[in-house]
């Protein structure tokens, strides 16, 4: 018998507390104008956390602050115990390796095939050889139902397929946290349901944490452990809890209308 084992390494997690993301007194906006003020919430390890809100309520902007693309006006966002807005150099790189992001538009590199797109983070951040990288990438593409499309360019795929390829790329490094911006928008119900199952499977088997911006009620009911709902007028969180709890007990009229698919009074 031959035993093969990597050298002992410390866990990649720096902080073992329950919260993997801690947002404290966060105010964010642009050009000195606050879009959302004094946000306080936490995302727990292994949970699927969903951000909801009306159009223009700042969901995607909040997501972009959480992944360190924008600096907040005040407050902090701790990812695994480290402030992503203030982390620099190697600390920032280490933090970025812990997260994967699938953008709303997919943001695949148009000049690269799907396989090359998924291989790119593996090439930059791991010592895997080419054949191993390609195998990992092909397996990620299989997970999102894109086997057989490895050598196509993004432009040769439908919008939904591009979105799934973006999720495969975001998962390439098996990050601790996966941020998904409107992952099932534009997908057919079956593919959207498959994607929900994938999220649940990854969350349960790998303990991966998901932060998802979505409007799909069916998805929210299937995947969400907890939900926060943002509101443009009050510039903050108007509801927080499980989908079932919000559907049954939410006091805010917008939240009730959202979960019951009701039109606004004016309409």
């Amino acid at each position: 018998m031959t035993e093969v084992a990597p050298d002992k390494q410390t866990s990649s997690s720096g902080d073992t507390s329950r919260a993997i993301i801690q947002v404290s007194d966060l105010t964010l906006g642009f050009d000195g104008i606050a879009l959302l003020e004094n946000l306080n919430f936490q995302v727990n390890r292994g949970e699927v956390f969903v951000i909801l809100g009306g159009s223009g309520s700042g969901k995607s902007t909040l997501l972009k602050h959480m992944i360190g693309l924008y600096a907040p006006m005040s407050g902090q966002i701790l990812i695994d115990g480290q402030d992503i807005a203030r982390a620099e150099g190697e600390a920032r790189m280490a933090l970025l390796r812990k997260i994967g992001v699938a953008f709303q538009s997919g943001a695949l590199f148009g000049s690269m095939t799907l396989l090359e797109n998924v291989c790119l983070p593996l090439e930059s951040h791991t010592a895997l050889n080419r054949s191993a990288r390609e195998l990992v990438a092909r397996m990620k593409l299989r997970l999102v139902g894109l086997s057989g499309f490895e050598h196509l360019l993004p432009a040769e795929l439908s919008g939904g397929m591009q979105k799934r390829a973006a999720i495969a790329r975001a998962m390439a490094l098996d990050p601790m946290i996966l941020f998904l911006d409107e992952p099932s928008a534009g997908l057919d119900p079956i593919t959207a349901a498959d994607l929900d199952q994938l999220i649940l499977r990854l969350a349960s088997s790998l303990g991966m944490t998901f932060v998802v911006v979505t409007h799909e009620l069916a998805s929210i009911d299937t995947i969400a452990d907890r939900v926060i709902m943002l509101d443009r007028q009050s510039r903050g969180i108007i509801a927080e809890g499980t989908p079932a709890m919000l559907r049954a007990h939410a006091e805010h009229p917008w939240v009730r209308r959202f979960f019951n698919r009701q039109a606004t009074e004016a309409a």
Partner: peptide, 18 residues
């Protein structure tokens, strides 16, 4: 029998793949 052991993640697995 080929026995794999320890932590097999994206950062460590390359050292034992070969």
């Amino acid at each position: 029998m080929l026995r794999l052991a320890g932590r097999l993640d994206v950062h460590t697995v390359s050292s034992v793949w070969g």
